[in-house]
Design a protein around this nucleic acid. Structure first.
Length: 149
DNA sequence: GCCAACGTTGGC
DNA sequence: GCCAACGTTGGC
């Protein structure tokens, strides 16, 4: 079982949205490295941190669990979607996603707090210019981060 | 709104 | 395959 961090802009999709829906496909990822994590490495039962970005209080706001492994992201087939990709077909999808299930919500563990915690200094999210929307988290980082709840 | 970082695109 | 131009992300 592995640990991950997944970013979302709360104006688009928030931890509250996930809490209400209970489960949701993690759609709209259009970066190959992030896609490859979902396609090749994320397994049923893996735990993920919900990280909110591009908002007043960037940071980790909850936990979710992979509830379905890789399957095509339906938004790539929808011409009306912002995530439409004309290269994609049902037979040959380009973008795959996992589905996640809500586990827990908690008050934001801010980016500032994460940055000032010595045991979390190597988290990929802290790397300058890191724009990857899905990153692996080590077991010790997971433990240290959730201890800040 | 600014801007650093960095992924993607496309001409050659 | 190189690399300049361009676009996007995301903290501030």
């Amino acid at each position: 079982m592995r640990y991950w961090l997944m970013k979302s802009e709360p104006e688009t999709f928030s931890i509250r949205d996930l809490k209400e829906k209970k489960r949701s496909g993690w759609d709209g990822v259009r970066n190959y490295q992030a896609r490859n994590f979902m396609r090749d490495e994320m397994k049923l039962g893996d735990l993920c941190l919900f990280y909110q970005s591009s908002c007043p209080e960037p940071g980790v706001v909850g936990v979710m669990k992979v509830s379905r492994e890789r399957h095509p992201d339906p938004t790539q087939f929808d011409p009306k979607s912002d995530y439409f990709d004309k290269r994609a077909s049902r037979e040959k999808p380009v973008w795959e996603m996992v589905e996640v299930e809500f586990v827990e919500e908690f008050p934001v563990i801010s980016l500032e707090k994460i940055r000032s915690t010595p045991t979390l200094k190597d988290m990929l999210i802290l790397r300058p210019g890191n724009r990857l929307s899905i990153t692996p988290v080590t077991p010790s980082e997971w433990k240290a981060l959730l201890a800040l709840r």
